[in-house]
């Protein structure tokens, strides 16, 4: 599919043929950028819609944005106190360590789930209206980032309570959060086309994520020996979470190089995911009906 502007008549001409758009990469790229640009207002509008509708039918309202990380942190603190969970030596008070870890992990988990969730929710619209498909993705991104920003309040509370003074590197943590987000979103978007056809992907995702969290240094320090150490080593989320946490609350980053590699690979694959999403969308719309 492609659209060109015919300069002689001033009309936009859209041409639809069976040929894959990837055969004209420059045209495709131009269209992707155009649609990305064209979707900003719609994306914002959809985000505002979902956001304002989310808690309207709820008594506790926005409290629901805070409760999961608080309860999660509380659980691990309790496990730690009672000696069930041995977390090793920490550079931070354990509750603060867990809270930061949980918030960062939540960004990753939300970002992975976001594309499939957003596209599934917009199924009817996608099947019936032609609008820039990127808008759905971006509104999902905004939601994930916004949730993180709300939960930052918890971080402030914890920092004040334990008297942690943020180091000079703290602003760099924003880049770290962005990298974690991109990694999650990249995996999510690569899974989206198949995930929309087969619900297995969505089912498996929640299972895999809860397992994945256990071999990521979210609530404990990464071990240096044993099978868990091996898993942590090949786990792309680990260096990002470790680095971000260090930037945010400790200062010196110990895992910077792997984090950088992960981030760069993520950016490349994120673009590939976007490309895949675009190519797959007409086929998805055709197969999922609605």
């Amino acid at each position: 599919m492609m659209t060109v502007k015919d300069s002689s008549s001033g009309y936009h001409i859209s041409v639809y043929t069976p040929a894959s758009a990837i055969r004209h990469p420059i045209k495709l790229l131009r269209e992707m950028l155009r649609d990305l640009f064209a979707s900003r207002e719609l994306a914002w509008r959809l985000f505002v819609r979902d956001f304002s509708a989310r808690y309207r039918q709820s008594f506790l309202g926005y409290l629901w944005a805070f409760l999961p990380p608080v309860v999660g942190t509380f659980t691990f603190v309790l496990l730690n106190r009672s000696g069930i969970l041995n977390v090793g030596t920490l550079p931070l008070p354990y509750p603060a360590y867990v809270m930061i870890g949980t918030l960062l992990w939540q960004v990753f988990a939300d970002a992975i789930n976001s594309p499939i969730k957003a596209v599934t929710a917009a199924k009817t619209m996608l099947a019936k209206i032609n609008f820039p498909r990127e808008a759905i993705l971006i509104s999902g991104m905004l939601e994930v980032l916004f949730n993180f920003i709300i939960r930052l309040v918890l971080l402030v509370v914890i920092f004040i309570y334990y008297g942690i003074v943020p180091p000079m590197t703290a602003p760099l943590a924003l880049i770290g959060v962005f990298a974690i987000f991109c990694l999650g979103f990249m995996i999510g978007i690569l899974l989206t086309p198949i995930g929309l056809l087969y619900t297995d992907i969505g089912q498996a995702l929640s299972m895999v994520l809860s397992f994945w969290m256990l071999f990521t240094p979210v609530v404990y320090t990464p071990p240096t020996t044993g099978i868990l150490a091996q898993l942590t080593l090949i786990n792309p989320v680990s260096p990002l979470i470790v680095t971000t946490r260090e930037w945010l609350a400790i200062g010196a980053a110990t895992n910077l190089f792997p984090a950088l590699v992960v981030f760069l690979v993520t950016i490349v694959l994120l673009f590939a995911g976007w490309l895949l999403y675009r190519l797959a969308m007409p086929i998805i719309v055709e197969r999922m009906g609605g």
Partner: peptide
């Protein structure tokens, strides 16, 4: 433009409203 044809060619000129 919601789904692609499997054969043939469609050309639409101007703003399409549905």
């Amino acid at each position: 433009g919601l789904i692609k044809p499997d054969k043939g060619r469609i050309e639409m000129r101007g703003r399409v409203g549905a």
